[in-house]
């Protein structure tokens, strides 16, 4: 475990837990894409299948449980909670996310580290995570208002991805034959998706103006 990876996991944890706590506190999910949250819940469900069969460390197990619990709680709040569900922007959150789930599944069947159910599901979760943010970014562009709830969420998620890339670079140079093309390529694609959001986020922050994404 290196510092980049620990910082990346903590940033990822903060992004999900802060989103859950904010939705729980203000009883609103305005600006949050349910599609992205559902995709993330699917990512964790597909990736952590080995939760009870393959013990890596206490940290690993605890974090997996926290990620599963928080991502499914957010989906529950947005779909079932009588107050929160009314604040969900249904007509704008229209990204057809099955258009990205299926290609990711096909890709996982074609490109994986080993053709076993768990490995294919693991690759599927890696590919899906790379594009899971798309419905949220589309929603932000459509509604054009980025209140701090979603802005911070996307910002922390982007920061977690950047830290993970630094983690891979560190591990590549410190661990012999540490090569994971699947995670690396998907991770770089995912981080690039955040790049333009980061650009506009930092500009708006510097000019102290409301964050506007180009149409």
């Amino acid at each position: 475990m290196n510092l980049f990876r620990l910082a990346g996991d903590m940033t990822h944890l903060v992004s999900v837990v802060v989103l859950l706590l904010k939705i729980h506190t203000i009883k609103s999910c305005a600006g949050v894409s349910l599609k992205t949250q559902e995709l993330y819940a699917l990512v964790f469900a597909a990736r952590y299948l080995d939760l009870f069969v393959h013990f890596v460390s206490l940290y690993n197990t605890v974090m997996k449980l926290v990620f599963l619990a928080s991502s499914f709680s957010i989906v529950w709040y947005m779909r079932k909670h009588k107050i929160v569900r009314r604040t969900y922007d249904r007509e704008h959150d229209t990204f057809r996310h099955h258009f990205i789930v299926l290609p990711c599944l096909v890709l996982a069947l074609l490109i994986n580290e080993r053709f076993t159910f768990r490995e294919v599901m693991w690759a599927f979760s890696i590919y899906l995570e790379a594009v899971a943010i798309l419905p949220q970014l589309v929603l932000l562009q459509r509604t054009r208002n980025i209140d701090n709830l979603t802005g911070q969420y996307v910002f922390f998620l982007g920061a977690y991805r950047v830290l993970y890339i630094l983690n891979w670079i560190y591990r590549y140079f410190t661990e012999p034959h540490f090569v994971h093309w699947i995670s690396w390529i998907a991770g770089i694609v995912q981080t690039v998706l955040y790049a333009d959001f980061f650009y506009y986020y930092i500009i708006s922050w510097k000019n102290n103006v409301k964050l506007e994404l180009p149409a």
Partner: peptide, 10 residues
């Protein structure tokens, strides 16, 4: 090889 396949990252 089995080590490489053990996904130790979240």
């Amino acid at each position: 090889k089995s080590e490489a396949l053990e996904h130790d990252e979240l």
